[in-house]
Structure formats: C-alpha cells, structure tokens
C-alpha cells in the first residue's frame, strides 16, 4: 500500500466525516426552519441571517454548559452512552458510495471510503449497535423516564430491524451482491430499484423512521410522555451528542434510502450528456446529495404532520403488518426472478 493511497483514503474519510457533521449540524437548523415554515412561523432568524449561526450558538452553549452527573448514575456507562451513539452514527458513512470514481492523473479514486463486499451487512450490524448507546444512556441515568425510553428504544429497534432486513433481502436478490457499490452500479440511469420494489421501499421507509427514532416513532424520547426519554438526565455536550446523533442517523438513513432505492449517484440521462467521466461523477455526487436532502426534508415533513404511535401499536404495526408484507414482498421478488430466469 503506497502513501498516496493512504493519503487519499485519509482525505476522503475526513471529508465525509466533516460533511456528515456539517450536514447534521445544519439539519438541526433546517429542522427548526422547516418546522417553522410548516407552522406559518419564521423560525430562528436572529443568530445571523436566516439564523445561519444558530447551530454554532447551540453547540457552543452546550459545550460551555455545566457538566452534570446524577448522583446515582453509573459513571462509566453514563459517559459511554452518548459517546457510543455518536461514534456509531458516524461509522456507517464509511461504506456508502458517495459518488463514482474520479480519475486524476491516470489513477482512479473511488468516492467510497471502503467498498466492503458485504456493505449491506456492515450497515445493519452498525445500526443495530446504535441502540446500545441509547439503552446504556437510559439505564445509566437511573431515572424511570429514561429507563422507559431505553426499553422502548430497544424493543422498537428489534421489531423493525427484521422487516427492514427482509426488504433488503429482496434488493439483494435482485442485485445478486451485498456490496453497496454494486447495487448502485446496477441502478444506472433511471433503472432505480424503487420502480421494481415500491412496496419494499415503503416498508424500508417506515422502518428507517423507526430506526432513527423519528416521529411518528419517536417513542424513546417522546417529549409529552417521557419528558426527554433516554436523555432526560443529560445536559451539556453529552446531550448535544445524542441530539446530534439523531440528525446524523437521519442523514445516513436518507443516504441509505437514496442508495438502495433511488439509484444513489445515478441520475437520468447521465449517458446522453456526453460529458467527461469526472464531471459526471461530480454531478452524480451532487444529485446524490439532492436526493439525501429531499429525504431529510421528508423526515421533517413527516414529523411535523403526524401524531405518534402508541407503544403497542408500534409493535403491532411492525410485527403484524410490516413483517408479513416484507416477507410477501420477498417471496414475490423471488418468484419473479425465478420466472425471468427460466424464460
């Protein structure tokens, strides 16, 4: 392995890390602005024009706020919780193909940090660890509301992971690969998976909401019931990590939706433009971010429109509706593939 390769990976990884953080940071502002606009309000506009410094203000304030540790808390776990959540949220971005490759000086540089050949499995593995951060935090706070929040988060995660994986299996069957890069490559042009898997997309979308603990599945925090849920006892930057992780998760989930169902960095008529490979790659990456932005917006749109589920209804929806539907979807996909294969 030569030095250039390490340098390139290092730059790419830092760039993606930075972008994730930046996007998450500004998602917080976007969320507040979007909420305001949905509600006929203006939203933050005092900190800089359009409230552009609002996230900085929030971050700085949280940073300088008093560190607080409840008397009966488990000290180690209490700190571990938010750190784990934050770390895991950032890990997923490694396997997402942010764009095709750039050719510089004859060498090809892929815009994916790691093209793991079991990328999908990696994502799921990481995502399912994510809930530990919440669980540990909720447990360590030694607060009943936090505990209820943590328990809810854990059970919610388990129920929806299953349906989510089932839909992915259908996709995997179609692409015949577990690598995200391959999956994107197969959706070249307008050949997006969403056209073939509308039901799968719907299920995946719902599960993504549940995995991110976003409304209408925001039971673990659920302000009006559990005050703050798992982060009730957290203050200062530890709280900041939790809130931040939520937005990073949202960003990553949107990226996953775009990658799996909306062709990632592919866009229609990309072959008809007759542009150089590098330009196409850059446009592709931008398109990818537009797609992500739309889904981030969609996440917010849903939050400010719908009431939330009740705990048992959430379980019922997960196990009794989404899981059977996902299985049916999988079987149909299998049948269609089989029939096509034999024709």
């Amino acid at each position: 392995m030569d030095g250039t390769y390490i340098l390139y990976k290092f730059i790419l990884a830092s760039a993606i890390l930075l972008i994730s953080l930046l996007v998450a940071m500004y998602s917080t502002l976007l969320e507040r602005k979007v909420a305001a606009f949905f509600q006929d309000r203006l939203g933050p506009n005092r900190a800089g024009i359009f409230g552009i410094f609002q996230p900085l203000a929030d971050g700085l304030k949280l940073f300088f706020k008093e560190e607080f540790m409840p008397g009966d808390a488990d000290k180690f776990l209490y700190i571990l919780g938010p750190s784990l959540t934050m770390m895991i949220a950032l890990l997923t971005s490694a396997v997402i193909p942010w764009g095709n490759s750039l050719v510089i000086g004859g060498a090809e540089y892929s815009l994916q940090v790691a093209d793991v050949n079991v990328g999908v499995l990696y994502v799921f593995a990481i995502l399912s660890i994510g809930v530990y951060g919440i669980m540990i935090g909720g447990w360590a706070s030694n607060n009943k509301y936090a505990l209820i929040g943590a328990v809810r988060a854990a059970s919610q995660m388990i129920s929806y992971e299953l349906a989510m994986s089932m839909t992915i299996i259908a996709i995997v069957m179609m692409s015949g690969s577990l690598s995200l890069k391959d999956m994107v490559e197969q959706q070249h042009g307008m050949n997006w998976n969403v056209w073939y898997q509308p039901l799968g997309f719907l299920i995946f979308l719902v599960c993504a909401f549940a995995e991110c603990n976003r409304s209408p599945f925001d039971l673990p925090e659920c302000e009006t019931e559990l005050i703050g849920g798992y982060h009730t006892e957290y203050s200062s930057m530890k709280l900041g990590f939790y809130l931040f992780a939520e937005y990073i998760n949202m960003f990553i989930s949107s990226a996953m939706i775009a990658t799996l169902f909306f062709g990632g960095y592919n866009f229609p008529f990309m072959d008809d433009l007759h542009l150089s490979h590098n330009v196409i790659t850059i446009i592709g990456s931008l398109v990818f971010f537009v797609k992500i932005a739309f889904f981030v917006f969609f996440f917010m749109w849903v939050r400010w429109t719908l009431p939330r589920f009740r705990y048992d209804q959430l379980m019922r929806l997960g196990w009794k509706s989404l899981l059977p539907l996902a299985i049916v979807n999988m079987i149909i996909t299998g049948l269609v593939i089989m029939i096509k294969h034999h024709l």
Partner: peptide, 13 residues
C-alpha cells in the same frame, strides 16, 4: 390533544 399525541402543527394553526 394533538400536541400530546405528537402532532404539534395543528396546534399552531
């Protein structure tokens, strides 16, 4: 009731 069930927007309207 809307707010408590998680739908804040109707409240603002």
């Amino acid at each position: 009731i809307g707010v408590d069930s998680g739908a804040l927007t109707g409240f603002v309207y």
